[in-house]
């Protein structure tokens, strides 16, 4: 199982992670929240073993989706998902098809990724991670710049995946989504883990980290799809 024990990371002379201990549990969906520059992305990259002097995680067991994940070339959705088989060194079709179905883009398989919507392209990247059939999914802002319906759909999918016994660690800026979908919220600020709480008790810590007041807001709002 992946995890970090008292890890300090210095990049360019600045400590971006400071004495961080973090252990995700199997079957858990964890949201990493915190202000910009809090070290969320670095923590995720440390978990994946992508930082210098870290041991790379087993690519067959751990899938990592970077922030602003895109493709330099206009691959098809099917080709993107098939890249997830590289760690296994095979071209098995069944896991790719299953991943595309799970992400709801089986019908777009032959479509070029530059000719579909941003939400669909994000799902294609997610399908690439699913096609690896990993035990752990590390996702950096998978819902950034998606419309609310697409964001809810992706997080609901991740929640179901966690419930099926996978571990999901996701960096989220949208606090409402984190509170709704995560089992556990890790609040980060200035390279430190400020709080590590079940989602239903995380709001005060989040408010403190962002320096925002919190309370009951009776104003009308959108609800997630039923």
């Amino acid at each position: 199982m992946i995890g970090l024990d008292r890890v300090t990371v210095t990049l360019g002379g600045r400590a971006v992670l400071h004495d961080v201990t973090f252990h995700p549990r199997v079957g858990e969906m964890i949201a990493l929240c915190g202000p910009n520059g809090a070290g969320k992305t670095t923590l995720l990259r440390a978990l994946a073993g992508l930082l210098p002097k870290t041991t790379p995680a087993d690519p067959r067991r751990v899938a990592y989706l970077p922030q602003n994940a895109g493709s330099a070339w206009a691959l098809t959705v099917g080709q993107i998902a098939a890249l997830g088989r590289i760690p296994h060194g095979d071209t098995a079709d069944a896991p790719v098809t299953l991943a595309l179905r799970q992400c709801g883009i089986e019908a777009l398989r032959a479509h070029r990724v530059d000719r579909i919507s941003g939400g669909e392209a994000r799902r294609a990247m997610l399908a690439r991670a699913f096609a690896t059939e990993p035990d752990v999914l590390l996702l950096d802002e998978p819902t950034a710049d998606l419309d609310p319906a697409a964001a809810h759909a992706i997080l609901a999918l991740l929640k179901r995946t966690a419930e099926q016994g996978k571990t999901v660690v996701v960096v989220l800026h949208a606090i409402d989504l984190a509170l709704r979908y995560a089992d556990r919220i890790v609040v980060m600020r200035q390279g430190r883990v400020e709080a590590d709480l079940p989602a239903d008790r995380a709001l005060p810590a989040l408010a403190q980290a962002f320096g925002l007041p919190f309370g009951v807001d009776p104003s009308p709002r959108l609800l997630p799809p039923a």
Partner: peptide
């Protein structure tokens, strides 16, 4: 294979074991 993985960027390629 390495070039295919690199289409997704260096971090993603490294995470695929490339």
């Amino acid at each position: 294979t390495g070039l295919d993985a690199l289409s997704l960027g260096e971090d993603a390629a490294a995470s695929l074991g490339v």
